[in-house]
Simulated assay, not measured.
Amino acid sequence: MKTNFQFLIIAILVLVASCGEKDELAAKKEELAKMKKDASALRLAIENLEKEIGSLDPEFGKQNRKSVLISTIQPKVGHFEHFIDVTGSVLSKKNVSISGEVSGRVQEIMAIEGMRVSKGQVLARIDAEAIQRNIEEVEKQLELAAVVFEKQQRLWQQQIGTEIQYLEAKNRKETLEKSLASLRTQESRTSVRAPFNGTVETVNVRLGELVQPGTPMFQFVGESDLFIEADVSERYVGIVTKGDSVEINFPSINQTLNTKVSAIGAIINPNNRTFKVEVFLPNIPNVKPNMVSVLKIKDYENPNAVMIPNYLILQDTKGDYVFTVDENLSKKRYIKRGRTYKELAEIVQGLDGSETLVDKGFREVGDNFNVNITN
């Protein structure tokens, strides 16, 4: 019984000690929160007081303000160029549809799509059996007409027979000669040939198919007289003109060349609000029709421009501005920018190129901030 009582006394003492510790911890937490609140209020009061003193004493504001670590750059003064970047496609003025000139069935097709051929090379043959039979018939008639004419000519030279008989024999012979020449021309046209050096784009006929004069058989693209065509936004109407300098890059062959705008479209496409621009393309190796190209058309240049990186330009309700450095103080200077190309902005008002601009840290400074310049 005595032992149970002792255990009870010990448990009560432990419980009282635990409650005491919890009360002490809570008191410390409450005291810490009160001190933080007082410190926050004190800091706010200090900042407000510094601002009030700084407004009354500018020298105090400069001395009391912390320095911001920055780097600086100089504006560039020189030749500024602006380009319009558009995608174009290589085309050929010798993009033609080759058609049959005589009637008949397709007897042989030698050309295949993508095949490069030379001028005069046979692409297909049309059955010429009927024409050949006509030729044989006319040749036999011509043999007889030639014999009759020769005999009639000898008789006429001997003043035997009439003049009309001589003229009729001569006329028949000449008529048959012309008919034979016409038939042989038709026979030659049964062979469909390439009109110039180029590439067969598409084959539109099949073996054994019946074709008529004018039936499209091949789509053919020449290798010369190439040009580039591109669609340019209508906002550049009047800006892009014939003769403008153009830099062309072919990404697939990693080749660049300079040329000029050779023609400007006269209408606006209502579907995409663009107009056509044609660029002259000299004969260069490895450039093929339908190849993709990137065009840089120069639409503006200034030989004496002041230029700065575009990312340094900030904006507020009054307009664009940058920060300059003057006697270790950052100065807010309003500017007027012109055109921007490749992250480089042309400044047309506000800078003359002699200023020192805040570069790294330009978002951390303000007007009349102390700055510490580092390399």
Rank of each mutant, 00 (worst) to 15 (best):
Q107T: 03
A17D: 06
N95F: 08
I284W: 00
I112A: 15
R125Y: 13
I308M: 03
A27E: 14
L69R: 08
K140G: 15
M110K: 13
F362P: 02
K29S: 13
N286G: 08
L49H: 02
N171P: 12
P251M: 07
E101R: 10
Y311K: 10
T190K: 01
D244V: 01
T340N: 09
S182P: 08
M291N: 02
K332S: 04
A146R: 09
R363F: 12
I98A: 01
D57F: 00
T190E: 01
K22T: 10
V221S: 03
T241R: 13
T162C: 12
I126H: 01
T72I: 13
N271A: 14
Q121W: 15
R105L: 14
S97W: 12
S97P: 02
T259F: 01
Q159F: 10
G61H: 00
L295R: 00
E364Q: 12
E143C: 14
G120W: 04
I160R: 09
I335P: 06
F83S: 11
V117A: 08
S118F: 12
N370E: 02
N372Q: 14
K51E: 01
D38L: 15
L123V: 05
F250S: 13
V77H: 10
V203N: 04
K29A: 15
Q349V: 06
A146T: 15
E47V: 01
D367C: 04
V68F: 03
Q132Y: 09
T374W: 10
E229T: 07
L42H: 11
G100E: 04
R333P: 03
L176W: 02
K93A: 05
L25P: 08
K62A: 03
N375G: 07
Q349C: 04
E150Q: 13
L295S: 01
D320C: 04
F275H: 06
K28L: 07
N370C: 07
V292F: 11
T87M: 07
V148D: 09
I297T: 05
